[in-house]
Design a protein around this nucleic acid. Structure first.
Length: 415
RNA sequence: CGGAGCGUAGUAUAGCGGUAGUAUGCAUGCUUUGGGAGCAUGUGGCCCGAGUUCGAUUCUCGGCGCUCCGACCA
């Protein structure tokens, strides 16, 4: 994409209505726009990042055998009455003209359980795994920290249906690994801990995925070198020992929750009547699990924790473009400009995602923007670079650049 | 929901009981091209409502909105 065609503009100054680093940088770079507190629009660059994250998540979920659906955002209140959750304050509710109440989906256990009543009758129909990636609405008492805690946000929610606890347990462990694959892929593997947390009303324990960050709302107990942690909410020396950790060696750190998985058991299948017949023609409640992961929050965590003082630093796998090609020349018809145009077309031919800064602005502005936008590879084509027979190559996280021939650059991009 | 702070050009900010300044952006012209370039000329603003006052962007009250701390958080 030619940068001259990109309508979003970058800004030098941090917005005065954001303190959070993630929101500040993403707004400065034109990735997102603020609509309300905790409510953001995604602009072209931001949407590209979000879609990359979504597709990464999709690949992992599909590998678990999950099938994607799109459930409705408007929800019937009736199943929520059956599950006893219709009074919860996080629910944005509204009324039909006729007077009936309905709500905006903030989670979908009730909805998917109701749907599955039409599709699960026999043990032969189990297990099943269903997920969606969808905008969720939660009437938070306090939105905060940019994309980290919003009232409207993107969520991948997955639900699994099993004949018994054993089947659920096996699947649950697979999901743990799939989640860890995702956090590893986006460069948060080392700072993300599988964390024992409260199972709430459903079971004794659940697991969270906590990424270390001073902006985090949670506190976890952990030991360096061990990727299992305990959330402060459930921590005691006894609990630590139970999970194989030595209380004496644990320290506390602030962390932000990037995922949460639950064993629901029959918490929803019983009240909503989701049952199946086993091999002995005996009616049994379906055993369920639910698995959340927020792509927009993950984008915020990446922006928050992997950036530096010049701007964003996207991991290649989620970067909106892989290459930032920058032309520096005084004359749009110069030999240098022709070379840059040709190279841009070569990159497109190779199927490389490239943002080409062909704008008629000063070199300083282009370079500062490149740092702010944070694409992994920066390639500068200028009179100076051409004089040495090639392009200047710099990786966003590196401090030094080096000169490469056009062929060498192409090769390196494809590595 | 309790507490604190804030709301002035597109953005970031200064200031005042007598209708507002700076930087940046944007527009035009000339110059300029490796770290947000220079000069000149323009463009553009006091969140909403009520009250006090001769006069309110400024003071008071209410509303709306934003940020932070706490509470809350499937």
């Amino acid at each position: 994409m030619r940068q001259s065609a990109l309508f979003t503009k970058t800004r030098k100054e941090a917005p005065n209505n954001e303190v959070a680093k993630n929101a500040s940088l993403l707004i400065r770079g034109g990735f997102i726009a603020k609509e309300l507190s905790g409510v953001y629009s995604f602009l072209p660059l931001g949407l590209r990042v979000l879609n990359k994250i979504n597709n990464l998540i999709r690949r992992e979920m599909e590998s678990l055998g999950a099938l994607e659906v799109a459930m409705s955002v408007l929800q019937n209140e009736e199943p929520w009455r059956l599950s006893g959750r219709h009074e919860l304050a996080v629910w944005f509710k509204t009324k039909l003209r006729e007077g009936g109440e309905l709500g905006l989906g903030w989670t979908h256990e009730e909805a998917i359980t109701t749907i599955m009543k039409d599709h699960l009758q026999s043990y032969r129909d189990l297990p099943r795994v269903i997920y969606q990636i969808q905008t969720k609405f939660r009437n938070e008492e306090r939105a905060k920290s940019g994309l980290l805690r919003g009232r409207e946000f993107l969520m991948k929610d997955m639900y699994s249906f099993h004949p018994d606890e054993k089947s659920l347990d096996e699947f649950y462990d697979k999901v743990k690994n799939a989640y860890l694959n995702i956090f590893n892929a986006v460069g948060l593997g080392k700072s993300t801990y599988l964390t024992v947390a409260s199972g709430g009303a459903f079971s004794e324990w659940s697991h969270e995925f906590q990424t270390l960050s001073e902006t985090g709302e949670d506190t976890v107990y952990l030991e360096e070198g061990n990727q299992l942690a305990i959330n402060e909410e459930v921590y005691s020396e006894e609990v630590a020992s139970k999970f194989g950790l030595d209380p004496k060696r644990l320290t506390t750190k602030k962390a932000i929750e990037v995922g949460n998985i639950f064993k629901l058991g029959s918490r929803f299948s019983e009240p909503l009547g989701l049952k199946y017949l086993d091999e002995n023609s005996k009616s049994q409640p379906v055993i369920m699990g639910s698995y959340g992961l927020g792509p927009s929050r993950l984008m915020g965590v990446i922006a928050e924790t992997l950036s530096d003082n010049k701007g964003l630093v996207w991991p290649a796998i989620v970067a909106p473009f892989k290459v930032h090609l920058i032309l520096i020349t005084k004359d749009a018809n110069s030999e240098t400009a022709k070379k840059a145009n040709d190279f841009y077309n070569d990159l497109l031919k190779w199927g490389i995602e490239v943002l080409y800064d062909d704008r008629a602005v000063s070199p300083g502005e282009k370079l500062a923007d490149a740092d702010l936008l944070g694409l992994p590879y920066r390639l500068v084509i200028s009179d100076r670079a051409l004089a040495t027979g090639g392009v200047e190559w710099k990786e966003r996280h590196a401090s030094e650049s080096k000169m490469l021939s056009f062929d060498e650059a192409l090769k390196k991009i494809n590595e």
